[in-house]
């Protein structure tokens, strides 16, 4: 359920589903997202579901905050929609040249790199959302002792394929991009395909992801 609706600027609705970031709150967000998407409401031009929020952007030429808020408050959400999910294995090379922030993590977490990687490679991750850059999956949940904040100043360029950690999540940079996540390795797998307009994302909200370690050679010669 939406706990609170406020405005984000003059052309977006900010729907808050509560402070808890877990799979059940996130599933609620995704249900609202899918329901609103299906209804094709006039003036709405974008929906951004995230862990515990849904942002609804609209065209200020066609509608306004009050109108969209009323529509959202009176929505009937179809609770029978099941999330379709699949399992995906993502190859990752942890060679020093890719693991840009592993030393920072060892220092911050007080855990050595061998244990950090052990933890990541044995885990099943749940995809909460995709975005920031095209197709980037946000994967949870890291163990409590593995959680660390973003970099204080984001990098101007994070290399394509970088696997990063922040708080309870891991992600994969589908393109070179600015970003502030702690980079621990690199995947050669194509996560986003812009030529597949219908289904461009390899990983979608609700999917289960595991990481598999590969060598630098395997990374270099990776063939999909």
């Amino acid at each position: 359920m939406i706990k609170n609706i406020s405005n984000l600027g003059d052309a977006a609705l900010y729907c808050d589903f509560g402070n808890e970031v877990n799979q059940s709150t996130n599933t609620e967000v995704i249900k609202y997202f899918k329901s609103i998407q299906k209804k094709n409401i006039e003036g709405i031009n974008n929906l951004t579901p995230s862990y515990n929020k849904l942002i609804i952007s609209f065209d200020l030429k066609m509608t306004n905050f009050k109108v969209i808020k009323k529509i959202v408050e009176n929505l009937n959400i179809d609770s029978h929609d099941e999330l379709k999910s699949k399992k995906i294995e993502v190859p990752v090379c942890t060679h020093e040249s890719f693991a840009l922030d592993i030393s920072r993590l060892e220092e911050k977490l007080k855990i050595n790199r061998v244990k950090i990687y052990e933890n990541i490679f044995k885990k099943e991750f749940f995809c909460y959302m995709t975005g920031f850059i095209a197709g980037m999956p946000f994967l949870g949940d890291l163990d409590i002792n593995m959680r660390v904040n973003r970099l204080d100043t984001p990098r101007v360029k994070v290399p394509k394929g970088s696997v990063g950690l922040t708080e309870q999540f891991a992600n994969i940079y589908t393109f070179e991009s600015p970003g502030g996540w702690n980079v621990i390795g690199n995947s050669p797998l194509k996560i986003f395909d812009s030529f597949n307009e219908k289904d461009p994302n390899l990983i979608n909200p609700g999917d289960i992801v595991t990481f598999k370690e590969i060598s630098k050679d395997q990374h270099q010669n990776f063939n999909e």
Binding site: G9, A12, S50, Y51, I55, G131, D152
Partner: peptide
């Protein structure tokens, strides 16, 4: 907190 739970952004934020 200098971080929030990642969430949607819009132009002008």
């Amino acid at each position: 907190n200098t971080n929030i739970k990642s969430e949607g952004l819009i132009k002008g934020a």
